[in-house]
Design a protein around this nucleic acid. Structure first.
Length: 282
DNA sequence: CACCATGTTCCTTG
DNA sequence: CCAAGGAACATGGT
């Protein structure tokens, strides 16, 4: 479900709603998502702590908490493929695939994840392996050029490498390559300067546009509404608005929005890639 | 039954 | 040592 834009929109939604709230208790229904933190350790740290801030790093949610004694620490969340996080009234039943729920008094903060690939942990070690934020200053054109220079791997696969640039997933990697008119099969070191410039810009524009899109409508955070679809941005009941602006992802066989050539699906590094074979030639 | 799914990590192979 | 590929994780949809 979540790539950088979905996590960003979620963080903006949750941050003001969690700020200063105290955790009264914690239910761990699926200890696997805590790895390597143990349930007792998480309970000891969280119970009695308050949320002081929430920020996004790549696809991770970084909850900053403060204990009663004043000490602060980080809780790291990741939505995996199917995770959701939302607040619901204390008397509402927890969803079937609730992994963790935090008792905030009048409401529960729920981490629900059908496939349980997500994380809810005190382990921060993955942060050191992440590349720069694609929308930040660290992801300069010079950095991008240097990072692609010596790799013969397909550019699509490189865009999914979180140590190169952190936050792109399968959807936005495909969409960015389409916007840049670069073939996903092109070896990273074979991109021309013009192609690198287009792709560098397209990555940033595609992500920024998705954040804007996700921010522009009321969203169905628990995903229980009928309009919940492929994407995190299931519209809240009764909401109207533009269609999700994906041009090639999950559209194999459908006409390219630019040239009408059927969109093609191939497999790279075990993941589907969608592209227009005419607009994105090698 | 088959195959597919927004992600990450681990293991094997070269 | 590194790069690349594949399987595993777990559940549900088509």
């Amino acid at each position: 479900m979540p790539e950088l834009p979905e996590v960003e929109v979620l963080v903006r939604h949750l941050a003001p709603r969690l700020k200063n709230k105290m955790i009264r208790g914690i239910h761990v229904r699926r200890a696997r998502v805590l790895r390597p933190t143990r349930p007792a350790a998480l309970r000891r740290m969280l119970t009695g702590s308050r949320f002081v801030n929430l920020v996004r790093r790549a696809k991770y949610l970084c909850f900053m908490l403060q204990r009663a004694d004043g000490g602060t620490f980080l809780l790291i969340g990741h939505l995996g493929m199917t995770g959701r996080m939302f607040l619901q009234p204390a008397d509402a039943p927890l969803p079937k695939h609730t992994a963790v729920a935090l008792d905030l008094g009048g409401e529960n903060f729920v981490f629900e994840d059908t496939r349980y690939f997500g994380r809810f942990t005190l382990d921060t070690s993955m942060q050191g392996r992440l590349g720069p934020e694609p929308l930040g200053d660290g992801f300069s054109f010079e950095y991008f050029t240097h990072a692609l220079k010596r790799s013969a791997q397909a550019i699509k696969v490189k865009l999914l490498d979180q140590s190169l640039v952190a936050g792109l997933g399968n959807i936005y990697a495909c969409e960015s390559l389409f916007h840049a008119r670069v073939s996903p099969r092109l070896a990273a070191c074979k991109l021309t300067r013009a192609q690198r410039e287009r792709l560098w810009s397209a990555v940033r524009r595609t992500l920024a546009d998705a954040i804007r899109f996700g921010s522009s409508m009321p969203l169905d955070w628990p995903g229980t509404g009928e309009l919940d679809g492929l994407f995190y941005y299931g519209r809240a009941a009764g909401a109207t608005g533009p269609q999700e602006p994906l041009r090639v992802y999950d559209r194999q066989g459908q006409p390219c929005p630019v040239c009408q050539t059927p969109i093609r699906r191939i497999v790279q590094a075990g993941r589907s890639t969608f592209y227009c074979p005419r607009c994105q030639q090698i």
